[in-house]
């Protein structure tokens, strides 16, 4: 036998018994009314996008961040907070300050890309990538007290950096592929859009 909700005709799914001033009070409620009464705790798996947007709402606290706007597509940071979607590649540069802590939380403290680099993005990015990767391995080697490996990695890094006068600053994030456009290919000028 299924009991109906005290307040409507739907089946009751939440049941509680309280003793108030010596009187027993039973409540039988459906999901919706239980939620209204504050009885129900909904334990659903939230999709990551939702978690992210909730997280953005909580932690993008710096009031200045709210006024950030992307020069290229006009997306406001507050709009990103609502949708958790970026407007265009340049948004990552425009919102970098507000975004970094957020990305660290979403990606296990990562702050830089490690992995594939489009071959057309140019050799300098490739080099930058290799250095970032070697630095990470170096940190691990030092942490693991593998000094022999650490020394070798250091040499490797120096060698690669030797090709590039001046320290490579991996933080200098510019939208790379538009720079890497080979001349004389197509004339798709939308790809050259810069503010």
């Amino acid at each position: 036998m299924k009991r109906k909700c005290d307040l409507c005709d739907r089946p009751a799914t939440h049941h509680s018994v309280e003793i108030l001033k010596g009187q027993k009070i039973e409540k039988h409620l459906c999901d919706a009314h239980a939620a209204q009464e504050g009885l129900a705790v909904k334990a659903v798996h939230k999709p990551i996008n939702e978690l992210l947007s909730n997280f953005v709402k909580l932690h993008s606290g710096a009031p200045a961040a709210q006024d950030l706007e992307c020069d290229n597509c006009g997306l406001k940071f507050s709009e990103f907070r609502e949708s958790s979607l970026m407007g265009c590649p340049q948004c990552y540069t425009a919102f970098e300050v507000a975004l970094t802590p957020l990305l660290e939380r979403a990606h296990e403290s990562a702050t830089h890309h490690i992995g594939k680099v489009p071959s057309r993005a140019g050799a300098s990015e490739m080099r930058q990538q290799t250095i970032t990767r070697l630095r990470k391995r170096l940190d691990e080697a030092v942490a693991g007290e593998d000094y022999e490996l650490a020394a070798r990695l250091r040499d490797e890094i120096r060698k690669i950096e030797g090709h590039d006068p001046g320290e490579v600053d991996p933080d200098e994030a510019r939208p790379a592929p538009s720079r890497a456009k080979p001349s004389g290919r197509d004339t798709d000028d939308t790809a050259e859009k810069h503010p």
Partner: peptide, 8 residues
Amino acid sequence: DMAFSPRW
């Protein structure tokens, strides 16, 4: 051309 940044 794919949207790519050295950092991200």
